[in-house]
């Protein structure tokens, strides 16, 4: 179905790109180990072991809408932020460095700028997915070690520790808000970062992305989708919160804008 060149360049990016950044995946696993330790430590207050969802809700809960009040500190939730930073570091510089250093040889073999660009976009999506897969494996491993792998969220645990009433949320929806929505939001942000790293430079794109994420936490506005993955900001956690469909549509728009905007830029970009 696909030509060997298309398969070849995508395989090149998936193999080389993931391999070259393997240390970043391992280093980026820190927040998952962190959440395991924190959740385990806090579980002594409860009679049952936490389920799979408790870990993810704790990781992605974030904070409710923030209203600035002088005297009250604005804090970005550390654990949530570290996950965003880890993904930003994974995407960071690989595409630009790859093009600058040995990209000429790969791009002339790919014979198409579009193919090269979309292959990089696929690499970004695959990297983010792999990062989440690593996280899921770590948390599943933790659940196994504790002797309980359960996919039923504990109401008491979540009410007390996560300020979330899970009795109002169906199991399917929990999968969506804990895994799918954060994954999709992360892919959208990473694609934005990818485009920025070519238009500006990897480090400025990284700075812009971090700024955008912090501002998104501060302002809960549809223009700022950086905090879409925060569970406490969606409709299940608060009245008037972000709807799932709204989040999905925003993410798709951002992904398309980043991919096609980047392609339009890259099409005219001189490689020298």
């Amino acid at each position: 179905m696909w030509s060997s060149t298309r398969r070849g360049i995508i395989k090149y990016d998936l193999c080389q790109g993931l391999r070259a950044n393997m240390w970043k995946f391992l280093a980026g696993a820190v927040p998952f180990f962190g959440v395991v330790m924190i959740v385990q430590e806090r579980s002594v207050l409860f009679s049952t072991e936490p389920s799979f969802f408790e870990y993810f809700i704790y990781l992605f809960k974030g904070i409710r809408n923030y209203t600035p009040v002088p005297g009250q500190q604005f804090e970005v939730p550390i654990l949530w932020m570290i996950v965003q930073v880890s993904m930003a570091l994974i995407v960071y510089d690989y595409p630009v460095v790859n093009l600058e250093k040995y990209g000429i040889q790969t791009i002339i073999r790919a014979k198409s700028r579009a193919l090269w660009w979309f292959s990089k976009c696929i690499w970004v999506a695959a990297s983010v997915a792999l990062y989440y897969a690593v996280g899921i494996l770590i948390i599943l491993g933790a659940c196994m070690l504790m002797g309980k792998i359960s996919f039923i969220a504990d109401q008491e645990w979540n009410m007390v520790m996560n300020e979330l009433d899970v009795s109002l949320i169906a199991n399917k929806q929990l999968w969506l808000i804990c895994i799918c929505i954060p994954l999709m939001s992360s892919i959208a942000l990473s694609l934005l970062q990818l485009t920025g790293s070519f238009v500006l430079s990897p480090v400025y794109s990284f700075l812009l992305l971090l700024s955008y994420i912090v501002i998104s936490v501060y302002y809960n506005h549809s223009c700022f989708m950086g905090a879409n993955s925060m569970i406490l900001r969606n409709e299940f956690a608060m009245a008037g919160g972000n709807t799932l469909s709204g989040i999905v549509i925003t993410n798709i728009i951002v992904m398309c804008a980043a991919v096609f905007g980047g392609y339009i830029y890259f099409r005219r970009h001189d490689i020298y």
């Binding site: 040995y102 000429i104 040889q105 791009i107 002339i108 790919a110 014979k111 198409s112």
Partner: peptide, 15 residues
């Protein structure tokens, strides 16, 4: 097309 169908090059330093 964006690039020639079949090209081999050594431009500047081998990278």
């Amino acid at each position: 097309s964006a690039f020639p169908e079949s090209v081999g090059c050594l431009i500047e330093n081998p990278a």
